[in-house]
């Protein structure tokens, strides 16, 4: 670990201005990702701003009938919140499919959004990695890439975003509230995370000093017909190889709207509205789901060890949509 100073912030404004003063200042929330990265010397902040005392612990209903989740609400409290269980079961399931009870009790909403990739080269400072050391190269492209991206990758980085919660938030079209240099702003979820392109060191579109204060959920329309399907190496407590958040709104027997977000396949939760639109106005059927799955994966590219994800993702999409429509979530 490098040397750093530490301070506790009591107000949102103080936290942001403190973060702006030092180039390598970093917020610490639950610490479940950051402490690990600091120990491995992957993260080297010179100043830590502890944000745990900020008044961002509430889950409140918004005027439009949605929900505002403070950035410090723990993953456990959010998953078990009665309003989330009732109106956004997709979010509860996604959160509970991730990590362990111990971790979910510490991990926060803001921290989950900004957790870093689990690419092992990124963690291993003895190897090159463009995300950690821009310009040093990407050994994953020709190396161990079983867990890596099949969509939206670049020649500079093929890492995936590891969060389960974020896949549900992408499907639900959440909005992220951010306070930064220019005051407060609202970032649509799809615009928070970015593709690696030629700047894989940047996971998100946030600027230095930006503090996430809350995540807002639009009114819940998918409580009856949604599912989170996570495919992984063990039944519990592993990151996703592929995950699917599927949410459907039905009118009579036909699909009014469908949302499909994929985890474990790209540098960000993956959505494709053109593909989703294929389902609009259609009767639910396996053929229709297969068509969407083909469309979602049409630009997919596998590497040496992760080509299997393409077929796996398609099958997972078909199954998840089937479960969402029938309103039955298999465990």
């Amino acid at each position: 670990m490098n040397r750093f100073t530490y301070a506790r912030a009591e107000q949102v404004g103080d936290a942001v201005s403190a973060a702006m003063q030092r180039r390598a200042a970093t917020f610490i929330a639950g610490g479940t990702n950051l402490v690990d990265l600091m120990k491995e010397n992957v993260a080297r902040p010179d100043h830590l701003i502890d944000i745990n005392r900020l008044p961002l612990q509430q889950v409140e209903e918004t005027e439009d009938g949605g929900l505002r989740v403070g950035a410090l609400v723990t993953n456990a409290d959010l998953a078990y919140h009665p309003l989330v269980e009732a109106r956004y079961p997709l979010l509860s399931r996604a959160i509970l499919s991730g990590a362990s009870a111990q971790l979910r009790n510490m991990a926060t909403t803001g921290g989950n959004l900004l957790q870093r990739t689990r690419c092992f080269y990124f963690y291993d400072t003895a190897t090159p990695c463009n995300k950690r050391e821009p310009g040093s190269g990407c050994p994953a492209i020709t190396g161990q890439n079983r867990n890596h991206a099949i969509l939206g990758a670049s020649e500079h980085c093929i890492a995936t975003h590891p969060s389960d919660m974020c896949v549900a938030l992408a499907a639900l079209e959440a909005v992220v509230r951010v306070t930064g240099k220019g005051g407060e702003r609202r970032v649509p979820f799809a615009e928070l995370h970015r593709l690696p392109g030629d700047m894989p060191e940047r996971d998100t579109t946030l600027e230095p000093g930006d503090l996430i204060t809350a995540v807002e959920l639009p009114p819940g329309r998918f409580a009856e017909h949604c599912t989170y399907l996570k495919v992984r190496d063990r039944a519990s407590y592993a990151f996703a190889l592929v995950s699917v958040a599927a949410a459907v709104e039905l009118a009579g027997g036909t699909i009014k709207e469908a949302r499909v977000a994929l985890g474990g396949v790209a540098h960000k939760p993956w959505r494709d509205r053109t593909a989703e639109a294929l389902l609009r106005g259609k009767a639910a059927s396996t053929e229709a789901f297969q068509e969407v799955a083909e469309a979602l994966l049409q630009d997919a590219q596998g590497y040496r060890h992760n080509g299997f994800k393409m077929a796996l993702a398609k099958r997972a999409i078909v199954r998840a949509l089937g479960e969402a429509v029938s309103g039955r979530q298999a465990s």
Partner: peptide, 27 residues
Amino acid sequence: CAEGECGACTVLLDGEPVNACLVPVGQ
């Protein structure tokens, strides 16, 4: 493991289980 995977370090913090290897004592 010292990185949140094995749970050997589990303690209750305000009644809820957490991994003591990842919790800064300052919190």
